[in-house]
Design a protein around this nucleic acid. Structure first.
Lengths: 344, 344
DNA sequence: ATGAAAGCGCTAACAA
DNA sequence: TTGTTAGCGCTTTCAT
């Protein structure tokens, strides 16, 4: 066993003082070339690595960022994490990743646990439960302590900090309009994320588009749930009720289940019904048929959030200079929608 | 701004010594109830949180674990991460997640960066490049420093540490046998992960099963690639060559592309060709038809690895007591294979 | 019951 | 050019 060596041990071995070693290792001009050589070589030979903890304690900076993720199995969040990681690695920051599993309590606990010197700042996304309970004091407490936070995707108006979000209303509006352009007359809306504000925004965009083009939203074609328990039966009921020819699903779960139901009922996509999804995860790309979907650029969201936080940490912008960045989306046309031909 | 408070400030404010405060906050029997009360209350009011860094420096323990993940967009790894996180959170450990993006250099850098007091141990998976280069010294160096490592999924025989892996040979054997049982005569093997040892093992299992039941492996039905660049054309060539009636795809990418090609050629699944996949990710469950697949229990792999590492960290087992744990798999029968009827 | 002091590994101001 | 010392926030031993 080749235990780690400290500056103190080097000093003793080489009969110099601790500070000489410290300076030599930091290549200080104060130290003679000769001594530097000697010390640096000894350090290398003995595989010396400075103890990050001690440095952090000294500098009051840890160069690590806490990442709060509601659910890592969600491909969208995985993409965001990748974006964050890329930027952080580039700029020399480590990340501590915490998964809240959509739980309020877990979110509060981990954030408190980390905001005591372990991390310099947070990049966080509210859990579903937090959003339901509307309790966001823990965020404001941490901000008050002087720890910067950047919120991504799911934000909350009562938290006064930087945010990086998607323009859900506009994206949903465009997706719905696309369906209308491709001659769909009865366009349904399906969501299992009604508990999230992003889910509500997408519904707003859908309704806005219909209304704008003179279609009165039909309650029976709108399914807004907080989970997918009763979804299958709701879809079947809806399809019995009216001959839908377009469906806008705003989360991947809805998309998967709709596709399944349509297959079961031998309804063809897109010949009988067109579908547009949201998020553009693995299922969209590789499903059959591949899904026309609103692509969210998760990596870009992550990168933007990380860049913003690091700016703050490095005092390139003032702590109280707060902004919300909106990341574009794009509609990726694939096989689940007909080629559009109506001009508006 | 409500800056964090230290023990020292409490001491000053309350006109007691630093050590009294420390003891009071730790509920020491040495301190009078009265003083304790006073100090604890003050601490609570001022939202005192002990500085983790200082504690770690003192204890030589950080209660955080470094997680090395080759690619977070891979759903299997995401599942493993979730398993790790669950156990770590339960036992009070934080995790620092690092993504290597399958790069050797990134793996070396991050592991070196963290193994200097930042983390107590590693849970790691070798990057593809590391596996190709067969350079694993960085792992052994870290082990030599006394930092425990648990390797998951992709391991390497030259690294002497705990491992948690899947029995790839056996799983592939069973999957292949299943295809044979369901009357497939010409079973193809498709892999785009030939660069990984797990990929090679799966091929071995496939060949073993064929051989065992008297089938001579046909080179033309075996596609072993290191990526998916030429996959589509290779599959088409193979299908032109011979009427395949069963395909064993050992990674999700292969599965997605095979399905696509079969759809294009109007070949029905499972009527014309049965498919079995590996890993059982999102695509398997929600594809159409849903894919019969070898399920890998990623969460269990993660949990097992985390438990093992924490045992080591808490000295429940000796550092040199090394073992390899093999996590079961199961074959999940879905719509991409015929109901089997041959008895062997 | 309370406090002084040393030390975890390191940096930096100051002294020699 | 090199060394001494104090201090980052905390625990712990040893006095008082």
């Amino acid at each position: 066993m080749n235990k780690r060596i400290t500056i103190k041990q080097i000093a003793k071995a080489l009969h110099v003082s601790i500070s000489t070693v410290s300076k030599a290792l930091n290549d200080s001009y104060e130290i003679s070339e000769e001594t530097k050589q000697k010390i640096q070589q000894y350090a290398k030979e003995h595989n010396y690595k400075p103890n990050t903890l001690a440095l952090s304690l000294q500098n009051k900076k840890t160069k690590t960022i806490g990442i709060i993720i509601p659910n890592i199995l969600n491909h969208f969040f995985a993409k965001i994490l990748r974006g964050i990681e890329t930027v952080c690695a580039e700029k020399g920051y480590n990340i501590i990743t915490c998964i809240t599993n959509e739980s309020y309590q877990k979110e509060v606990n981990t954030m408190n646990m980390l905001s005591n010197g372990t991390i310099d700042g947070f990049i966080a996304c509210l859990s579903e439960e937090t959003l339901k309970l509307q309790k966001v004091d823990h965020f404001n407490d941490i901000l008050n302590e002087g720890t910067p936070i950047v919120l991504y995707d799911r934000a909350h108006k009562d938290i006064k900090c930087d945010k990086v979000v998607t323009d859900n209303i506009k994206s949903a509006y465009k997706a719905t309009r696309f369906l209308m352009k491709s001659e769909c007359k009865n366009i349904a809306f399906i969501s299992t994320i009604e508990s999230l504000n992003v889910g509500k925004f997408r519904a707003q965009g859908y309704i806005k588009a219909l209304t704008k083009y003179g279609v009165v939203p039909d309650e029976n074609l709108i399914i807004r749930l907080e989970n997918n328990k009763t979804l299958k039966e709701r879809i079947n009921k809806m399809l019995d009720y009216k001959s839908v020819d377009g469906i806008f699903t705003v989360d991947e779960m809805s998309d998967a289940i709709v596709t399944q139901v349509l297959n079961e009922r031998k309804i063809r996509i897109p010949e009988d019904i067109s579908i547009i999804g949201f998020t553009n995860g693995i299922l969209s790309k590789h499903g059959s048929p591949p899904l026309t979907a609103v692509n969210q650029f998760g990596e870009e969201i992550g990168e933007t959030a990380a860049k913003r936080l690091i700016e703050k940490l490095e005092n390139k912008v003032d702590f109280n200079d707060i902004k919300t960045e909106i990341i574009r989306t794009e509609l990726i046309e694939r096989g689940s929608t007909k080629k559009m031909f109506i001009k508006f």
